[in-house]
């Protein structure tokens, strides 16, 4: 399972690096969305800082929807699906690999958007750095859930609106936990409790994905 996971993750990241969608489309989109959110809040620095955690996760959610769809589309051509099916890859390994690749992409984007929140939303650098571990866990949970819902919504072949409709209710608790722990890092509060919720969600989505990804692929 781990061998397949590393193979699939390496393949997905190589495809992403070569296509440069992350670099030239997703990152500019994320930064632009963050700046626009800041402009929508008006010129008050204090308001920006307090809204920054929520805006960060809102932007990361939009980025995640793009990346989840992209991760599924690279497998979606009928010929590719048939050929890959004949390789007989362990579906649990495929799930873990795709989730790992997506997590790496979200972590990279998250770092850039976090830097953007320091620059444009004036969040405190020390609090932002303190939030990095909890952000990493929350984005990993988002990647695991997103990989699962990406397969559930038709693996890149379903209607474009299906993924957000199915996944947004599932992502909501992750966003709340992520926003709360980021806010706690910036303004004080119970950081660990919210972080623990993200960690439990990550473990739950990984377990569900390992067990059910094969069934989703077959269906």
């Amino acid at each position: 399972m781990i061998r397949v996971a590393l193979l699939v993750a390496g393949k997905d990241l190589r495809i992403e690096r070569r296509s440069r969608v992350l670099l030239w489309q997703v990152l500019p989109f994320g930064v632009t969305a963050l700046v626009l959110c800041g402009l929508a809040l008006g010129p008050t620095h204090a308001g920006h800082s307090s809204a920054a955690p929520g805006l960060f996760y809102l932007v990361m959610l939009l980025v995640a929807l793009l990346m989840i769809n992209r991760a599924q589309v690279i497998e979606s051509s009928p010929g590719t699906r048939a050929s890959i099916a004949t390789l007989g890859l362990d579906p649990a390994g495929v799930f873990l690999g795709k989730a790992l690749a997506l997590a790496v992409e979200l972590w990279l984007t998250g770092l850039v958007v976090l830097a953007g929140s320091v620059l444009f939303l004036h969040t405190a650098l020390s609090g932002t750095l303190e939030a990095v571990p909890s952000v990493a866990v929350t984005l990993a949970a988002l990647a695991a859930a997103g990989t699962l819902y990406g397969a559930l919504s038709g693996g890149g072949q379903g209607p474009a609106t299906l993924l957000p409709i199915l996944s947004l209710p599932a992502f909501a608790p992750l966003l709340i936990a992520g926003e709360r722990s980021f806010s706690s890092s910036l303004h004080g509060g119970s950081l660990w409790r919210w972080w623990l919720i993200s960690l439990v969600a990550l473990a739950a989505y990984l377990a569900i994905g390992i067990l059910l990804y094969g069934v989703l692929e077959e269906s």
């Binding site: 495809i15 070569r18 690279i74 051509s77 009928p78 010929g79 590719t80 048939a82 050929s83 099916a85």
Partner: peptide, 11 residues
């Protein structure tokens, strides 16, 4: 399987 659409990763 060899499909007429292509059987591999384009990138």
């Amino acid at each position: 399987w060899l499909g007429h659409e292509g059987s591999f990763y384009d990138d």
